[in-house]
């Protein structure tokens, strides 16, 4: 049975985050031939609407208001509820991002619906789609169904592939106007620490450092390697706590959950809280001088050795093969 599905698009500094396109792909699986509508909430964001269509949205609805310039659970839920009232969707998809994690439970409560959070795969062959999500800090998986009513999920970034971009695909872009009132939480200041460049949760290659990196300068070779591979630098909590790098780089249960194609862990022991954030990476390389380190248990390839020897050699070797 085909369903009409609303998909929340997310922007960062004016550009769409990749997870918005992945959510469209997830929306299509749930829609089963039904309409997939992207919802874009913010202020002065209409420019990117066509990109959502190119990635498969059948229509785009924008909600713009000065009060929606920054995210708030009150503002964004009012905006979405207005769209929901107009469209009566049977499904909703958003990213399991900071925003999605904050907003989705409130919306589910408003709509008196179930919600399956942090979905990494969808089985949509039968009547009611089954959603797969990691549990127990990534050590197990569960398959869930929504018994009845709205099919509402959040998806983990970088797991459900976006559809191929199709330039010139056309779709209607309309707007809904909402009177945003009574914002009970007000953002006074935002301190952006996240480095510019590749978004960690969406990077294809991550070079991560732990306490074994030993200093801020110790991260330089890791940065060089990441740049060379078009990737991003990440870190363990140990490295952040020791002030070798900023907390915005932290990967794990408390930090970002990442699923790159290649994760290179340098001087990271492999604590469960760290693994919860990276164990689903496609290929894991561990570089650690302790052959007993836990990280080797999840690594596809391991080098037992001093990262300060290995990483510079890796940089050289990658440069060589790039040239040839």
């Amino acid at each position: 049975m085909s369903k009409k599905v609303l998909v929340l698009a997310e922007t960062r500094e004016g550009s769409l985050r990749n997870v918005s396109f992945e959510a469209i792909a997830a929306g299509k699986m749930i829609a089963d031939g039904g309409e997939v509508i992207s919802v874009l909430i913010g202020n002065g964001i209409t420019d990117v609407a066509n990109e959502l269509v190119a990635y498969g949205a059948d229509r785009v609805i924008t909600v713009e208001d000065a009060k929606l310039e920054q995210y708030s659970s009150d503002g964004f839920s009012q905006a979405l509820l207005a769209v929901i009232e107009q469209e009566n969707p049977e499904g909703i998809v958003m990213g399991h991002t900071s925003l999605g994690k904050d907003l989705s439970p409130k919306l589910a409560s408003r709509l008196n619906s179930g919600l399956v959070s942090d979905v990494t795969a969808i089985e949509a062959d039968g009547d009611s789609p089954k959603f797969i999500r990691p549990i127990y800090s990534g050590k197990a998986f569960e398959k869930k169904v929504i018994k009845d009513g709205l099919t509402f999920i959040t998806i983990r970034p970088n797991n459900i592939p976006a559809l191929e971009k199709e330039e010139g695909r056309s779709g209607d872009v309309s707007s809904v106007s909402v009177d945003i009132t009574d914002l009970r939480t007000i953002i006074k200041e935002v301190v952006r620490k996240a480095t510019d460049g590749v978004d960690l949760s969406e990077a294809k290659v991550i070079v991560a450092g732990g306490r074994g990196v030993k200093s801020e300068e110790g991260f330089e070779p890791l940065k060089e390697l990441a740049d060379l591979l078009g990737g991003a630098v990440g870190a363990s909590r140990g490295a952040c706590d020791a002030d070798y790098c900023d907390y915005s780089l932290q990967i794990g249960q408390t930090g970002k959950v990442v699923t790159p194609d290649l994760y290179i862990a340098c001087g990271i022991s492999g604590a469960i809280q760290h693994m919860a954030g990276m164990s689903n990476s496609k290929v894991i390389v561990a570089i650690n001088k302790d052959p007993e380190a836990n990280i080797f248990k999840v690594a596809d390839y391991g080098i037992v050795g001093d990262l300060f020897d290995v990483v510079p050699l890796l940089i050289e070797e990658f440069k060589k093969v790039k040239v040839s």
């Binding site: 398959k143 009845d148 080098i303 037992v304």
Partner: peptide
């Protein structure tokens, strides 16, 4: 409940990773 768990399973056991051997240059 509005949702139901139909299955719980462990991730497929990962094949033991390969720890490289030899001189560091060769490993790299």
């Amino acid at each position: 409940p509005k949702t139901e768990t139909v299955e719980i399973y462990l991730p497929p056991a990962k094949e033991a990773g390969r720890i490289l051997e030899g001189e560091v240059d060769d490993q790299v």
